[in-house]
Design a protein around this nucleic acid. Structure first.
Lengths: 113, 113
DNA sequence: CGGACATATTCTTCAAGTAGCATATAGGGC
DNA sequence: GCCCTATATGCTACTTGAAGAATATGTCCG
């Protein structure tokens, strides 16, 4: 998880990932599209690969880099409890709004957070 | 987005965020629970706050820090196109795995964060 | 094999960020 | 006002990580 987040937390790497969303791409083309020099692209790709965010398959002299879903899926899964969290808070807000319309004798205390 | 990712991409900050999932918490208690010295907790909280991931409300001499949903929701939204991506590519991936004849036990998930 | 092309790696700065320690700020109780 | 508690900030040392330039590896083609 940490590895995924640190890998994505670098602007150029995030751009690479977003570019690869369109499909597999060789190193050179990534550099062209993102205005990055080839060695930097390779280095960023190495980090992304180490994080499992991309995989590579050689094609002739080129290396086609391709997104891997798994870490992003993990990220999605990691977010799950937070979805609960903010939904819970939304409920709390709604409850609060209701309470403001509820006579005092019908009010209940909020559950412990 | 970048700010969110870099903020979460630091182990102790991620731990803080995960701790705050349980609800608002004063600085000292965060330090106690996570075995961090108070100044570090404050500094990490500053980063998280700058990223909008937490908000603070003073209570007596304490400062209660609380999660803010918005950046996480943004992250969730950011993931949306990738959900599409991996669903679209799922079939291809499975086909690929079959072709490679990769045993399932080699594709175990990594342990959670 | 030699040359051209695509990519990876090494090395050297250089900036950013983290921990540790000391200290400053601020609120509450006396 | 003084002291105690809770938190924030400043400074320094150290580590990490990114960019740049040069070079190495590796593949294809003649």
């Amino acid at each position: 998880m940490i590895q995924t987040l640190t890998a994505l937390g670098e602007p150029n790497r995030l751009r690479i990932v977003e570019l690869l969303r369109a499909g597999p791409c060789p190193v050179g083309e990534i550099g062209d599209r993102l205005q990055l020099r080839q060695p930097q692209v390779s280095k960023h790709l190495r980090v992304l690969k180490k994080a499992g965010l991309v995989q590579m398959q050689p094609r002739a002299q080129q290396r086609l880099y391709e997104l891997r879903a798994e870490p992003l899926r993990e990220l999605d899964t990691w977010l799950e409890p937070y979805r609960r969290y903010w939904n819970a808070r939304l409920d709390a807000l709604e409850r609060h709004l209701e309470i403001m319309d509820t006579p005092v004798h019908k009010r209940r205390r909020r559950p412990p957070t």
